[in-house]
Design a protein around this nucleic acid. Sequence first.
DNA 1: AGCAATTTGACAATACGTTGTCATTATGTT
DNA 2: AACATAATGACAACGTATTGTCAAATTGCT
Lengths: 158, 158
Amino acid sequence: MASDMTTLIIETFRLNGELLAAGDRLVSAIGLTSARWQVLGAVDMTTVPLPVAHIARNMGLSRQAVQRVANALAVEGLLAFTENPHHARARLAVLTAKGRRVFEDAMARQRPWAEGLARGIGVSEVNTAINVLRSVREKLQTDAKPKEDQLHVLEKHA
Amino acid sequence: MASDMTTLIIETFRLNGELLAAGDRLVSAIGLTSARWQVLGAVDMTTVPLPVAHIARNMGLSRQAVQRVANALAVEGLLAFTENPHHARARLAVLTAKGRRVFEDAMARQRPWAEGLARGIGVSEVNTAINVLRSVREKLQTDAKPKEDQLHVLEKHA
DNA sequence: AGCAATTTGACAATACGTTGTCATTATGTT
DNA sequence: AACATAATGACAACGTATTGTCAAATTGCT
């Protein structure tokens, strides 16, 4: 049903807004915002230091958006750029000691908060929701790039 | 599990971004954006013309955000403000004939698009996802306003 | 080696959302 | 009637994201 899908879409918008607001509340005491927290997390997650443009791709955002936040984090000393032996311009983003400390503070706040959110909701329902959201997102992403698919088809014929 | 909830949160962020991008693609040809489309929809939905602040509450957004979009829509002639007999400043937002036409164009595009998104996903799974998202959002919203609940408790005791 | 395409970061313009402040208008209580 | 409170819109400052453009650096193909 299209109307169910429409309901899901509207609910996704609303939940996204509430999550951002809640995330801001959660980490504002330690001088973070949701966006900065997410960038710190993306930098922390990598095993090897990466340039900002690479991190942006990992996050599914434009590199300019991440660049701006990363620069702000660097000004505040949470993140630093190290020289990249393979690329003179594309310096590598790494957490500073302070950045790692702040990020761990944020995660320590996030853990009990996420547990509280999950309380009362069945694990299988949550996983069903995750799978539905992922299916819809993947469909949107393939819709957005029909060109590449067509090229793949052409390659197969060639 | 907290980690399942974290996965759901991240997936919500990603889907939100894809939905906004897809919505923009869907209605950009008729000069709309996702945000303007949503405001038109909120104005269209009301049985009686309402002031902008009231519409913003209906949408769960700040009145300033909606005001800005509504003003832009008024400049483009999709929306008009009529005098409010009950309030000199709070004029009432109504769709113009052009606004109604554009909104109906947008809905005509949305219908088959939403159907395509829903295809291949079970109705019950979609409804489970809706219920999970709604539960999490409501929990966030009650967390955000512990004051009022406490006041209600106090009122009962008083 | 040379040249085209890609990657990266910087910068500007724009869209969308927030909070805060202010003046004006209603509302409600005393 | 008077005064405190709430609602509304205007304005400003800011945070987050987008696209577009540009120059520099890298990569890849011939």
